[in-house]
């Protein structure tokens, strides 16, 4: 299976600040990928690079085997839903669908009309008067009716209330099930995506902190609690991601190749939330550590 999205050492600079720095990752096709990271981690920049709205300052990006933004054919193969679901405030729902039909050769008008009818949207209503949830649904309909091979969604549920959030993700899952499209959706909250994504990319501070299949990640990580011991004394095949010690007890989040056999440990499965936070903290610590060593070198 080829990769839907592949970046090699990609970087994007705004003035002096690197929004994305030396970022290498590949997203396999046919998955629903959660792109997670705190605000300012570079999620939007990465998605904009993927869809060709931005050009990289360093490195390279390949989407569906092509350089993004190379032409209308490349654009036709991907759907994009920008943050806050922009729509033309003065155009009606019907006019938005008309726009989609005019501007996209692979437009699925039947699907779009059906979708809008299912959502109960009034086609004569102007987009400016839609609620946030309705606008997000309209924007998703526009992106999906393009019949893309790759669907990129930038914080699609961030501004939605819990009910609209659920409905939106529901729609998304229906689309994925019906059309087998690869989806990348970003959020600063893993809990938003937990239910829908089966592949995870964690970005922090412009770099990849963690990437992998969700099930594999959950299966290979464990939370160990037991009598206090040093993390250096751990057996091979086990990597400590995060540790904390109190007087007599140690708690460690470890990545292990095989099962945990040591009976002194109490093993608890990790949640995706724990995992993401642990890796983000680790990425932060290592970057502060490298900054500190730089300061010493000077």
């Amino acid at each position: 299976m080829t990769n839907a999205l592949e970046t090699v050492a990609v970087g994007k600079r705004y003035g002096r600040r690197w929004a994305l720095n030396d970022c290498t990752l590949s997203v396999p096709a046919g998955r629903v990928v959660g792109l997670v990271g705190p605000n300012g981690a570079g999620k939007t920049t990465l998605l904009h690079l993927a869809v060709g709205l931005l050009q990289p300052s360093a490195g390279s990006v390949e989407v569906l085997g092509e350089r993004p933004g190379s032409g209308p054919e490349a654009l036709a193969r991907m759907g994009f839903l920008a943050q806050d679901s922009p729509a033309y405030a003065r155009l009606t729902v019907a006019q938005h669908l008309q726009m989609g039909a005019w501007l996209n050769p692979r437009w699925d008008g039947e699907f779009a009309a059906q979708r809008v009818a299912d959502l109960g949207l009034d086609t004569k209503q102007r987009a400016g008067t839609l609620s946030g949830g309705q606008r997000a649904q309209l924007a998703l309909t526009l992106a999906v009716a393009k019949r893309p091979e790759l669907l990129l969604l930038d914080e699609p549920v961030a501004s939605l209330d819990p009910l609209a959030r659920r409905e939106f993700l529901q729609t998304l899952m229906e689309v994925v099930a019906a059309h087998g499209v690869t989806v990348v959706l970003s959020s600063h909250l893993i809990t938003d995506l937990e239910r829908v994504c089966d592949y995870l990319v964690v970005l922090d501070n412009g770099q990849v902190a963690l990437t992998g299949d969700v099930e594999d990640l959950l299966a290979s990580h464990h939370l160990l609690t037991g009598p206090r011991r040093d993390s250096d004394a751990m057996p091979s095949g086990m990597t400590v991601v995060e540790e904390s010690h109190v007087e007599r007890q140690s708690t460690m989040l470890v990545r292990a190749d095989g099962p945990i056999l040591d009976p002194t440990w109490t093993v608890t499965p990790v949640t995706l939330d724990d995992l993401v936070l642990a890796y983000m903290r680790q990425a932060r610590d290592s970057s502060t550590a490298s900054r500190r060593s730089l300061a010493v070198a000077q």
Binding site: G52, G69, P72, L75, G79, P86, A87, N104, K146
Partner: peptide, 17 residues
């Protein structure tokens, strides 16, 4: 200003057109 350029530029039409 309103961000609709992100909608327009990701339809299947080149930016120059």
């Amino acid at each position: 200003e309103s961000g609709t350029f992100r909608l327009a530029w990701t339809q299947s039409v080149s930016r120059s057109r």
